[in-house]
Design a protein around this nucleic acid. Sequence first.
DNA 1: TTAGCCTTGACA
DNA 2: TGTCAAGGCTAA
Length: 651
Amino acid sequence: MNVFLLAEKKVKENTLIMQCLCPLLGESVADTSTSSPDLVSPSSPKMSDALLNPPSPDSTPIQIHPPEPTLDKISSRLEDSGVFDGGGTASVIRSLPTIRSHSPPIRPAPTFSPSQPPRPHSSPGRPANTSPRASPVIRHTPLLLQPANSPPRSLPPTIVTCQEPTSSMPSILSSKPRGVIISQQPTLTQSQIWLKHSRINGVKPEVIGGSFTTSSTGHYSDIKPPLSPMPRSSTSMPVRQTPTVIMGEAGGEPQMIHPTTSNWPSSSPNVSNTEESAAQMLLNLGQDRLRLPVSRVVASPQSPTAGHFTNAPLNMERLWAGDLRQLPINQQTQALNLTSPTPSHTNIYFPGGEQHEQAEEEEQPMICMICEDKATGLHYGIITCEGCKGFFKRTVQNRRVYTCVADGNCEITKVQRNRCQYCRFKKCIEQGMVLQAVREDRMPGGRNSGAVYNLYKVKYKKHKKPSGKQPQKVMEKNIMSQQFKQEDQTSSIPSNLVNGTILKTALTNPSEVIRLRQRLDSAVSSSRDRNFSIEYSLSMIKTLIDCDEFQDIATLQNLDELLDHNTDLSEKLCNIGDSIVYKLVQWTKRLPFYLELPVEVHTRLLTHKWHELLVLTTSAYQAIHKAGEQMTTVIETDFSQEVAIFLFLYF
DNA sequence: TTAGCCTTGACA
DNA sequence: TGTCAAGGCTAA
């Protein structure tokens, strides 16, 4: 049998399936066939749209109109049905006679080097409702400034748990000797009990993607290891140059946040809120580790009296480990040196909640955006008082970890700002204070340069006017605050352009790839991104191959049962569609850099690229398995040829 | 630990 | 040289 004949047969079968699925998923076969294989095509159909808004019956050759398979419905089916158990032996391409067994999806478990054991949880190991009058706990460590020649992440954070917001907290804290580990690492049994009540910085761990799983040693395997080493300063650095900053040039992988509010602008305007929410729901299906909640409520500077500014938790341990996803989007893209929407939350405000437009006519003292105390200027990106400035600096420099025993929404005012360090720092972050502005080398004086304030200075010059009156100066600061985070696109390659950045950019902002490449080429050749060893590269390739689990996507369990069952055809197709959706979700979660991928990438993979993923995976699967043993006995073609054949036939 | 004041140093 | 925003110092 000629391979082409066999392939054609498979394609016909697959096409039939696709024809059945496309109406369900809102796309015609013709659309799929004409779709470019370009994986970064922004114009691809959206699966979530298809799921939420099934096309009219006239839109496809096969007029099947399923009864609006909403996500809720899908979710419930996913949970209720036994279809999604990791794949089975029945194939979507039903002619496949044999299917090789596969190992379970491989996802590298977080590992910790001996020199960096997993840090204990920031919670002191008690239920959240423990007596609030218990003494605060200081765990860990010498608050040593990170040595210039050591990765900042190796510095263990200081974990400070505020048992109860109380004005006497500072004195209590000062009474505790530093470096004394008070709480004990729970045993496995204890931890199981403890985990039930545990909180990360005052919130349930599962809320922030931290479902705690314990290893046999009782260590928490959910703590994300450092993503990449931070650049190191020279040990013999008497020559002071441009100040290095903490978390900025070095600060780990640039990550995106879940942008849902105007104050946390989205970097992916092509993805609608509906799509995002739909994709987020898909990502959460059957998921045991949820990510940050989508919703955020950020205080508006226009409402300075609003003490409750957000409900989003902040995991400081992860933050110091380089997880910048918790930061406002502008800070993350800043680290990536990419453009970002103009932040809207850094407006300077004045007493009474007026913004600069209204304040021009009045000379009023600047008000701290954190506590509303009298501000002394622009500190770390926003207008703050000396107290909040110092507090932010100390927190970042010492990588302190706070915990709120309340709901993480403590009111931060001049009077109450010392009652909850966690909420104070959280507000600092949310109001736009820039971690990167805290200098790693502690060099005094001057002004920050580099990625943190490049554009800042540009905008400063651009908007500065001869008048030196206070309102005008304040307005200039406002302009700077609003716009300094837009990166100077002519700046040098970001030092944290580490492995995966280009891929992420390709998936999130394809137009940036060319520029990134140009900048990469023009960057200093010592870039560590190009110095991977062969062993490391092979290991990464193997990891990627292992996670692909073609069978998991290309096959469906109980397909025969689904099709033969005496149910409505649309229901059968819904079930098939559910299976595909679920398996694609599982695939994205198997990616070794899944946790590093911004949610936008997840969204795009599922909403824009689902059909390409499906077709490519199915093609590769058939090629690998040679469409059954019949093919293997007929003709010997190599893997690439067969993939090409199937791709050619599909596209 | 906080926060007010001081010193420092890049930049306009 | 003045401004500004860093870090440092230190009393509370």
